[in-house]
Nucleic acid binder design. Structure first.
Lengths: 111, 111
DNA sequence: TTAACTTATCGTTTTTTTACGATAATTCAA
DNA sequence: TTGAATTATCGTAAAAAAACGATAAGTTAA
């Protein structure tokens, strides 16, 4: 009967999947690019540029914020969003770590 | 009325999102780790290790294959899956490119 | 050939994601 | 204070993802 399925997914696997999910929509990648390119974190501008309704953009922003990739502050009637560089650096490193750890075994490939 | 929402998402944004989606589930990350760690690409072993039904694992494998991250060959009654290192290297570079291009603007952050 | 084994696919259900319009809440300008 | 502007949230609908059991299709060993 072989071994039991006792292995739940590890913390790091879950966290990586969470970050990947945050990046798993072109609108959210576009938002990150916009936030990075503009020195002002104008939120309304994003709605103008993206082919999505304001409420949908707001939802994507919320997901990015929940994932920790961006942070937002209230600026008068407007909202100011920015990339959370600390978290972003962490994600970058985690992905890099995954990639490099996978590649260590590269030589053994059989197909 | 500002500018029209003519900007669809770019090719690179869509492709990145597709790859991210492939990584957006802990089971698929776990599968990649298993494939990388074993010098044999035994498929059935994955089912034993993961807390998922065989059909579900098969589905995840198919998604990874569709995304191009792995490739599979038939080995008798069994199936042999391996990481597609070429594609993987491409993904790695694309992510790295995204991260570094975003970070170029880092100094301008406003919040 | 038959039986056992391995894996993909099918059908289905449940959950999550994506999207929108409408509305509420907040702030600034008149 | 009123009105315009901005954004978040609510309610909802449609689409996609995730999961499972059952089944089919293939291969090897007896």
């Amino acid at each position: 009967m072989a071994s039991a399925k006792t292995t739940e997914f590890s913390e790091s696997e879950q966290q990586l999947a969470t970050f990947a999910k945050a990046l798993a929509h072109p609108a959210r990648i576009a938002i990150l690019k916009i936030l990075a390119a503009q020195n002002e974190c104008i939120c309304g501008k994003i709605v103008e540029v993206l082919p999505l309704a304001q409420s949908t953009v707001s939802q994507h922003l919320k997901e990015l914020k929940t994932a920790g990739l961006i942070k937002g502050t209230i600026d008068g009637p407007k909202s100011c969003y920015c990339i959370n560089w600390d978290a972003f650096e962490a994600v970058n490193k985690e992905f890099g770590f995954l990639f490099s750890s996978l590649q260590k075994e590269k030589g053994k490939a059989c197909c």
